[in-house]
Amino acid sequence: MRYLFILIIAIPAAEIGLLLFSGKTLGVWPTLLLIILTGVVGAYLAKREGLQTIRKARVQLQNGHIPGEALLDGICILVGGILLLLPGFITDIGGFFMLFPPTRRAIKFLMINSLRKKIQRGNIKIIK
């Protein structure tokens, strides 16, 4: 429940405050150009990384492997692309972290550890 509060209330409020500060400091037009630029760059990066991940998943499937890591990459790229399309600097930083492969590795590591803990606690059950 506390994460829902952060997602719905705190992050948009911080984004608005940061956008107002940026508009006052840099000016309205440079702030708007920065928002548009991060959206365009984010869409390009998401497309490039997404296509690369699809190719990697195809190769893994052709070799008879389950593309687990490619699926986690795909989830990170999807969320990162969505965050970059949202207006605001905080979501842009989060989106870039999810799109760049070095930082995405760290995020995937956290995702895997979180899933492992939930499986060990019995919150998630795997049926074979």
Score class of each variant (00 low, 15 high):
Ile54Ser: 02
Ala70Tyr: 02
Thr31Met: 01
Lys56His: 15
Pro102His: 12
Leu26Lys: 09
Phe97Thr: 08
Thr31Gln: 01
Asn113Lys: 15
Gly94Gln: 06
Gly39Gln: 03
Leu85Lys: 13
Pro101Val: 08
Gly95Ser: 11
Gly64Thr: 09
Gly80Arg: 01
Leu85Asp: 09
Ile36Asn: 03
Thr25Asp: 10
Gly74Pro: 11
Pro101Cys: 09
Gln62Leu: 13
Asp73Cys: 11
Ile112Glu: 12
Leu99Gly: 03
Phe21Lys: 09
Gly17Ser: 05
Pro102Arg: 08
Asn113Glu: 15
Leu33Pro: 06
Ile54His: 02
Leu84Pro: 04
Leu83Val: 03
Arg55Ile: 04
Arg116Gln: 07
Gly68Glu: 14
Leu26Trp: 15
Leu83Ala: 11
Ile75Gln: 04
Lys56Gln: 14
Gly23Ser: 11
Ala106Arg: 10
Arg104Glu: 06
Gly39Ser: 07
Ala106Pro: 01
Thr103Ala: 09
Glu69Ala: 07
Gly74Tyr: 02
Arg55Val: 05
Val59Arg: 14
Ile93Glu: 04
Ile54Pro: 00
Phe100Asn: 01
His65Pro: 00
Phe109Asn: 08
Asn113Asp: 13
Phe100Trp: 08
Val79Arg: 00
Arg58Lys: 15
Thr91Ser: 15
Thr25Glu: 13
Lys117Met: 12
Ile54Lys: 03
Thr31Phe: 01
Phe109Cys: 04
